[in-house]
């Protein structure tokens, strides 16, 4: 175990370094796509913490993502908050919302937990529509460029700059990755995994299982909200579609594709799925078909996802 620390740090550091270097060699389109993939991967990493490591399958994470999205969009356009303030506020509110939802939803488990999260998320989606005066419902909110250009610590930050956005997304991804690694490799993470593997045994060993689960929901929800806020601010848009059930299913798919319970899995899954959709819609009108086939092949031949398979076959130390 001890010796793993170095190679784990090396591997994840290398991935981040590669992503950093990518901006110097990749074309404009790849750079723009990677920016989006990194932001969405934070969402998927948050999801993975709950699903992959703790074994709780939520069908309502879009509500956490949307919390960040709308705090950022409404905070900047309606209330007039600055971008840094609103970003921190979104993270804080994301934590509160996930604490509240977690406290309620964790009374249920298994499929009931899926439904409870789904229902809360659906209620959040409808609430966005209900307050259409402020959210403009499905049409959504555009954050003007003038808001996205602001002074910060004496510098002028312009979120319309693709290079800046790329590096910001990378920095956020690095932080999210660090948080996940720290949790997963700590005793706390081992308890989460123990809960996933056998909840009653974890209870018998004297762990307050519900509190650990709540912790996982809060970290997971907060990361999702962070990703949502970053998404709104970087891509200048928030709309109810991004709070719909499809956006709850996305992180589940990305996580499963990349490998549940691997720190890098969600990033890999997001990137691969993005590429599949992108390439497929470039040469066929039937891009959903490609996604469907990929998913079925995945469960037939790579049940543990990409990195899960890598861990199983070659790198047993992969966190």
């Amino acid at each position: 175990m001890k010796g793993d620390g170095a190679r784990i740090a090396l591997l994840h550091g290398a991935v981040l370094a590669l992503l950093f270097l990518a901006q110097f060699v990749a074309g404009d389109y790849v750079q723009l796509s990677l920016t989006r993939i990194m932001v969405l991967a934070i969402y998927a990493m948050g999801y993975n913490l709950l699903y992959g490591y703790t074994g709780l399958l939520s069908l309502g994470h879009a509500m956490f993502f949307a919390t960040g999205l709308y705090v950022a969009a409404i905070g900047t356009t309606r209330i007039g908050l600055g971008v840094p303030e609103v970003f921190l506020l979104a993270i804080a509110i994301g934590a509160l919302v996930s604490l509240a939802i977690g406290g309620l939803a964790l009374r249920a488990s298994g499929v009931a937990f899926m439904i409870v999260t789904l229902m809360f998320s659906q209620a959040a989606f409808l609430t966005i529509l209900y307050f259409g005066e402020y959210t403009r419902g499905d049409e959504g909110i555009v954050i003007a460029d003038s808001i996205r250009r602001f002074g910060f610590l004496g510098m002028t930050v312009d979120l319309a700059s693709a290079t800046l956005r790329y590096n910001l997304a990378l920095a956020l991804l690095a932080i999210a990755m660090g948080v996940c690694l720290a949790i997963v490799r700590s005793p706390l993470g081992h308890v989460l995994i123990a809960i996933r593997e056998n909840e009653s045994r974890a209870t018998m060993l004297g762990y307050d299982v519900t509190r650990y689960k709540l912790f996982a929901v809060v970290v997971s929800g907060t990361l999702s909200a962070t990703a949502g806020a970053a998404y709104a601010l970087m891509f200048a848009y928030a709309g109810s579609t991004l709070a719909s059930i499809q956006y709850s299913i996305h992180p589940l798919l990305w996580t499963l594709l990349g490998g549940a319970a691997t720190v890098l899995g969600p990033l890999a899954g997001t990137a691969v799925m993005y590429a599949v959709v992108d390439i497929a819609s470039g040469f066929t009108t039937a891009n959903l078909l490609a996604v469907g086939v990929v998913l079925i092949l995945l469960v037939l031949f790579f049940r543990k996802g990409l990195l899960g398979t890598v861990r199983q076959r070659w790198l047993p130390w992969l966190p």
Partner: peptide
């Protein structure tokens, strides 16, 4: 829209119908 601008390098983009797609794409 990003793909149009940077990969296909189109001269203009056009044809979007649904309002939410317009709103999501126009900033880009």
């Amino acid at each position: 829209v990003e793909k149009f601008a940077t990969q296909y390098q189109v001269d203009v983009a056009f044809g979007t119908l649904f309002s939410h797609v317009v709103m999501g794409s126009a900033p880009r």
